[in-house]
Design a protein around this nucleic acid. Structure first.
Lengths: 343, 343
DNA sequence: ATCAATGCGACAAACTTGGACGTTTTCATA
DNA sequence: TATGAAAACGTCCAAGTTTGTCGCATTGAT
């Protein structure tokens, strides 16, 4: 029994394929875990384990301290086994993440998605996928593709607090090599942006990951500018979303139609929202939300289904926008659209 | 060694907490796997395994065929261990899924997210999270909450092709008990809808999962109406998204501003889109896309940043909308808004 | 009440494990 | 090129573990 546990711990010590661990290292770690074993035992155990098809581990055959690793691209084994509803949730997550994560990021989870697939197949539940549909409420734009090797370097650089050298091609410019001092990653609009400083300059830049051609880890450590915090940097509006460059809660009063009323009842804007009747077809919505550009997009997207009543500044902004739209479209089209009313 | 494999296979046979397996069942399955073992051996093995804190398995102590299960709420163990970049991707996925999946669905993956957390902590990479930000481009609405027990029954019913009995409270009506014949699940707008027929009627209904109060699996099998396929059902516009109730590709010509031009260069509308200059501030975008309600929302959300030029039908629709908006806002505001120009 | 199925303790035979020791191989250093 | 340290690997054997068997107790169905 003791040996079963040791086998288990040994298997846990062995890393996945690109990495490896030598037999003496395993011995040392096991001894730290209070297993009083001999090197010979470790050697024998490893040979035994690797002989079983259940544990696809192998060693580098011609080095002297043999190094062991899991042969990969197989999906992980786990205990307890993935349950069918976990498997379903994984498939669901996969469907949701597909339009959101660039393929090179998502690829790091394929092992789990495959595991879920296998589980569903063996349970004869493979038809589940046909029983689930996702209707996105935003337009699927094609994600910008990122060089997988670049992504790997960026991940590692952020993890290990190291700089990296990379070829970056800014819009309308020729590619150049920079030393990048990475501070954070921001996912927006199906794209990934690296927030970083360059060389030893101190101004914080945003670099789109898909504009990097190649990257190589450096050994210089990252210098974080005093007081820099990614969250604050985003909140300050560096990604140009909060309105007027600072986040502010506002109390909205909107006149909405029946469709929106129903939708908002089911998925409210905030926890304390109130909906009351104005007339047979219109409802008053009151809610407190953060005044962001997303809010404006959301309101605009319903066209005349939403009329902003308060706050007044917001209403005025929408009045101006309505005029701009009207001017843009009606100028040229008044003559051909008989239904247009004279304003 | 043989016994190690047997232990492993035994552990795989044991399901997670709500489910369980009896000792004789384990014996039978092991024998099917060509292990020539005795029942007594299985019994002893289970006792031994459950004694180890590594394998949190337990049995029902007072039933005669003892039933074994994994004690729950522990994160799964896996081999090979989760790598740091898998862990990072899990955390990322968690951040993305948070606003998309109702808590009761997401809860089924918490084990994995916890596993990722642990891994990141032990590698001292916990600060990674502070280095990643997600800027959503849609307004986060609060997801409708679903009774976890209802979700479990619905999942199971769909998996096993069984009907279920449930209490459903339709909008503005009192709760009633129905026998539901489930056909599929649709995720839309942060809500989950069950596509189903009721009792033995043949008309297909959409039932919001959060409107179910309780549910109980029945043993009657699901009857799928002839020719029913969820994908077609959605595509037919049953969730009211495709325009004019059928999907049609259209060739868009849009006049867009500089911000949009840049955005579309990075995340294009379709693979063959073309962008050309109109004047210093405006660009002509040509792309072929499916004419859906999402497209209209997307266009509307940019206000006067986009002018639809073609197809003409679409332009006319936007002309009408611009007029409606203008009428809605300008009527009442002309007098108070000095900035508004007379049209 | 009876029977079949299961759990559990005990025991001995069979098997596995792991340390000891020796030989071989490889690599780094003198 | 010689030398030595470290690792791999083969083999032996005693200690320890595993497993089938049997007997008895308990439980639930007929």
């Amino acid at each position: 029994m003791e040996s079963l546990l040791r086998y288990f711990d040994m298997l846990c010590l062995i890393p996945k394929a690109p990495n490896s661990i030598s037999t003496p290292e395993i011995l040392e770690k096991l001894q730290n875990m209070d297993y009083a074993v001999d090197l010979r035992t470790v050697q024998r155990d490893l040979v035994k384990l690797s002989a079983s098809p259940l544990f696809p581990i192998a060693n580098t055959e011609n080095t002297k301290p043999l190094r062991w690793f899991w042969i990969d691209n197989s999906s992980p084994m786990q205990l307890p086994m993935i349950s069918t509803d976990e498997a379903l949730t994984f498939k669901l997550a996969e469907m949701f993440l597909e339009p959101l994560l660039p393929p090179s990021v998502r690829a790091r989870l394929t092992g789990y998605f495959d595991l879920a697939d296998k589980r569903l197949k063996e349970s004869k539940f493979e038809h589940w996928i046909e029983k689930v549909g996702i209707v996105p409420n935003n337009l699927p734009l094609l994600p910008a593709e990122i060089e997988p090797s670049v992504l790997a370097v960026v991940y590692e650089a952020l993890l290990k607090n190291l700089r990296f050298k990379a070829t970056y091609q800014a819009v309308n410019k020729s590619p150049k090599i920079y030393e990048i001092n990475p501070l954070g990653l921001v996912f927006r609009h199906n794209s990934i942006y690296l927030v970083a400083t360059i060389f030893d300059y101190t101004d914080v830049k945003q670099l789109a990951l898909h504009r990097f051609k190649e990257a190589e880890l450096s050994d210089r450590i990252v210098l974080v500018p005093a007081d820099f915090a990614l969250e604050d940097y985003i909140a300050q509006g560096s990604f140009s979303y909060p309105v007027d460059n600072h986040l502010k809660d506002i109390t909205l009063k909107l006149k909405v139609n029946g469709f929106l009323k129903q939708m908002l009842l089911e998925t409210p804007l905030c926890e304390k929202q109130k909906i009351s009747d104005i007339d047979d077809e219109h409802y008053l919505l009151e809610a407190t939300v953060t005044n962001t550009e997303q809010l404006h997009w959301w309101i605009r997207s319903f066209g005349s289904g939403i009329e902003v009543l308060e706050p007044l500044e917001l209403r005025e902004a929408f009045v101006l926008e309505a005029e701009a739209l009207s001017e843009m479209y009606c100028k040229s089209d008044n003559h051909l659209n008989s239904k247009s009313t004279f304003l």
